[in-house]
Nucleic acid binder design. Structure first.
Lengths: 263, 263
DNA sequence: TGACCCCATATTTGGATGGT
DNA sequence: ACCATCCAAATATGGGGTCA
C-alpha cells in the first residue's frame, strides 16, 4: 500500500484535506525555520485557514512583532520613517529594558557610533535580534537608495554627477525627544576588525545610510553618497568564537556591519 | 554516500549555503503553492536574501498585489477601510477591464447584491480571485466583529443585549465616487442554491458584514447584528461541475458565499 | 557564476489504526 | 471530532558532475 500519487488540485475529501493541511502546514513552517537558520536569511509567512472559522492566521515567526517588522521592510519605501531601531528595544524585561535604555541613551548621546560597551552588554540572542534590526534598516535604506537612483537616472539630470560630492554634515534635529543635535558620523564594524579612518576619499561606491535611530531622515540625504566611518571594534564575548573559528564564514554575523552591503 | 545528516545551524560553507538556499527556497515556494491549492487556503511568504546584494525579496504569490492584499488582511483591524474589493478590479487587461468596470458599476448601482450576470461573466480564474477577495473581506469583517465582541464583553455594558436589536438600514453615503446611496441589503449565495428570504427573525447568530465595496463603514454598524439576505443564485457555467460532482465537497467554493462564515 | 542532471539518502506525508 | 503513532511511498535535497 503506502500511498498513491497526489494530484495538484483541491482535495475533495474534507477530512483528509484538513489533516493534510495540518501536516503540511507544520512541515512548511518547519522548513521555513530551517531555511532561515541554515542560510541566515529573514523570512516570514502568513497562512489563513479560510475554511475553519474561529481560527487565527498561522504566522511565522511566531512573534507577530517580527512578522510586522519583516512585512514593513518589504514595502519599506512607503514607510521608511515609521520603522525604527527602537523596535528592538521594545518588549524587553524590566531590568534589561532599563539597562538598554540607559545604554541607548548614552549611545544616542555619543552621536550614533556603535559603542563597544553596548555590543558587549548584549547576549547572543539579543545581538542576533539587533543584527536583524540592522538588516531591516539596511534593507530599507538600500531600497530607498535604489529607488532614488532610478528616479535620478530616469530624470537624466545633468547635475547627477554632483550627487557624489561630499554632503555637508546633516543635522538630524532633535533625537530621542531630547534637544541635542548629532553629527552625521556613523560607525560600523568591518570584517577584519581593523580601523579604516575617514579620509573622505574613494567613497563613490558607498552611501550614507543614516543613523540607527527611529527619527525621520531628510529625504535628500539619501541621494548623497558619503564615506562610511569605520572604527576599531572588538567582538563582544558572545561572538568571539566567530573570530577564532578558523572557518571562512566569520563574515556571517559581521557582514551587515561592514560596508559590503552598500556597494 | 548520498548525503550526510544535516545539523540545524548556520551552514559554514558559503558556496553550499547559497546553493542550499536556492534549492530550499524553491522547494519551499513549491510546497506553499501545493498547500494553498490542495487545501484551499490563502497564504503568502516573504523571503529576504540578506547576504546577496542586488536582490529583490522573494515573495509568494508572485503577484505583489496579492501579497499586499494578504498582508493587509493580516493586520486587518488597522486597515479595514483601506482594503476594498476594488483591488480585484485592478491590473486587468484593457478589454476585460472595461467590461468589468461596466459590470462593477451596474453591480454597485444595483445596491451590492451579487448579480447573476456578473458571476457568469467571469472566467474561472477570475472567479477564484474574486473569491479570494471575498475571503479577505470576510476575514476582515470577522476579525473586526471579534474585536468588538471582546471589547463589548470586557466593557460589560448593561445594554449589550440591545445590540441584537435590528438596526435601521445604514446609509453608506456616496459610493464609487458617485452620488447614489445604497440600502444595506447584502446578497450572498447559500449552500443549496435556494432562497432564504429576509424575514428579520432568528438573526441572533449572524452579523452584518457590510457591502462588498471599498467604502468606509461606520464603526457602530459592525457592533449590530443583522439578518443576512440571501437570494437565489445559479452557479456560473465555470463552476457547474462543483454542483454535479456528487462529491461531499461542493461547499468548497460556495462556503464563503453562504452564512456559515459568520456563525 | 548559474542552470541543469544524477543519485543516494533524509525527510515528508497520505493513509490506516487506536485511543479519548 | 481530535491526537498520536506507524509505515511505506513520494519527495526533497546535499554533493558531485557537466555545460555554457
Amino acid at each position: 500500500m503506502g500511498r498513491g500519487k497526489l494530484k495538484l488540485e483541491l482535495m475533495r475529501n474534507e477530512k483528509s484535506r484538513r489533516l493534510t493541511f495540518k501536516k503540511r502546514k507544520h512541515g512548511l513552517i518547519n522548513k521555513l525555520h530551517q531555511l532561515t537558520t541554515l542560510c541566515d536569511v529573514t523570512a516570514c509567512m502568513i497562512i489563513f485557514d479560510d475554511n475553519s472559522n474561529y481560527h487565527e492566521p498561522e504566522i511565522w515567526p511566531r512573534d507577530p512583532e517580527k512578522v510586522r517588522r519583516i512585512v514593513e521592510s518589504y514595502d519599506s519605501p512607503k514607510s521608511v520613517s515609521t520603522f525604527g531601531l527602537s523596535d528592538f528595544f521594545r518588549d524587553r524585561t524590566k531590568t534589561v529594558d532599563e539597562e538598554l535604555k540607559k545604554l541607548r541613551k548614552s549611545n544616542l548621546e555619543s552621536k550614533f557610533p556603535i559603542r563597544q560597551e553596548f555590543l558587549d552588554s548584549l547576549t547572543e540572542s539579543q545581538l542576533r535580534e539587533f543584527g536583524d534590526a540592522l538588516k531591516n534598516k539596511a534593507r530599507i535604506a538600500k531600497s530607498r537608495i535604489e529607488f532614488l537612483k532610478n528616479q535620478e537616472s530616469t530624470m537624466k539630470q545633468e547635475f547627477s554627477s554632483t550627487l557624489l560630492d561630499y554632503p555637508p554634515p546633516p543635522d538630524f534635529g532633535n533625537l530621542d525627544r531630547n534637544q541635542e543635535t548629532a553629527s552625521s558620523s556613523s560607525s560600523v564594524m568591518n570584517q577584519n576588525n581593523s580601523v579604516i579612518s575617514d579620509d573622505a576619499t574613494n567613497f563613490d561606491d558607498r552611501h550614507y545610510c543614516g543613523p540607527s535611530s527611529d527619527i525621520m531622515i531628510p529625504q535628500h540625504y539619501y541621494t548623497a553618497a558619503a564615506p562610511v566611518v569605520v572604527e576599531d571594534v572588538v567582538l563582544p564575548p558572545q561572538l568571539q568564537y566567530w573570530e577564532n573559528d578558523g572557518g571562512d564564514q566569520e563574515e556571517d554575523i559581521l557582514q551587515f556591519f561592514d560596508g559590503s552591503f552598500w556597494s
